[in-house]
């Protein structure tokens, strides 16, 4: 499945996605994607952080509480974190957060963790597409996170 297959009514609900990208590979890959003019969904909004290890559940919940449809962290590849293990720490926290969402009866696809490689724009765009597709699946199944509140 690709982003083109998503129905317009679902796509309409995907308005704001906050993506925390680390200062190293994350930002690097998004810049590379930009330079290569690789189109992706305009709902993707990138926040620059020093390392994904800097992003805690606080930031993620802040984003969701302020209207984001989904949040993702994009860091360096596993084993290549520029600050040793920030991406792994972030992954563990997101794992717990996903579990919280499941326990609340939501889809666990509203928060996600990815990696990308600075030299490859397509990995960043792949992450974004994957994010949008997962979100669209979640919305199709049970609506957005904002629904019903």
């Amino acid at each position: 499945m690709s982003c083109e297959d998503i129905e317009p009514e679902v796509m309409e609900k995907i308005q704001d996605i906050v993506v925390f990208m680390c200062n190293e590979c994350g930002q690097g890959s998004a810049n590379t994607a930009g330079v290569a003019r690789m189109a992706y969904n305009p709902a993707i909004r990138i926040v620059r952080v020093q390392c994904t290890g800097q992003v805690g559940p606080i930031q993620i919940m802040d984003a969701l509480n302020n209207g984001a449809d989904a949040v993702a962290c994009v860091g360096c590849c596993l084993g290549a974190c520029h600050f040793f293990n920030g991406n792994i720490l972030s992954m563990h926290r997101i794992k717990l957060l996903k579990k919280v969402f499941k326990e609340l009866g939501y889809s666990d696809q509203f928060v996600n963790q990815y990696t990308s490689r600075a030299a490859e724009g397509e990995t960043a765009v792949g992450d974004f597409e994957d994010l949008v597709i997962r979100l669209s699946n979640a919305i199709r199944e049970e609506g957005t996170i904002k629904d019903g509140c």
């Binding site: 906050v18 952080v49 800097q54 930031q59 802040d62 984003a63 509480n65 302020n66 904002k146």
Partner: peptide, 23 residues
């Protein structure tokens, strides 16, 4: 962290997440 504190990041997040609390 200086210039990356929770509050500063929150300020940045608010507009790009859609601006203001939803419900």
């Amino acid at each position: 962290l200086l210039n990356f504190s929770d509050k500063q990041l929150l300020d940045e997040i608010i507009p790009i997440a859609g601006g203001g609390a939803v419900c």
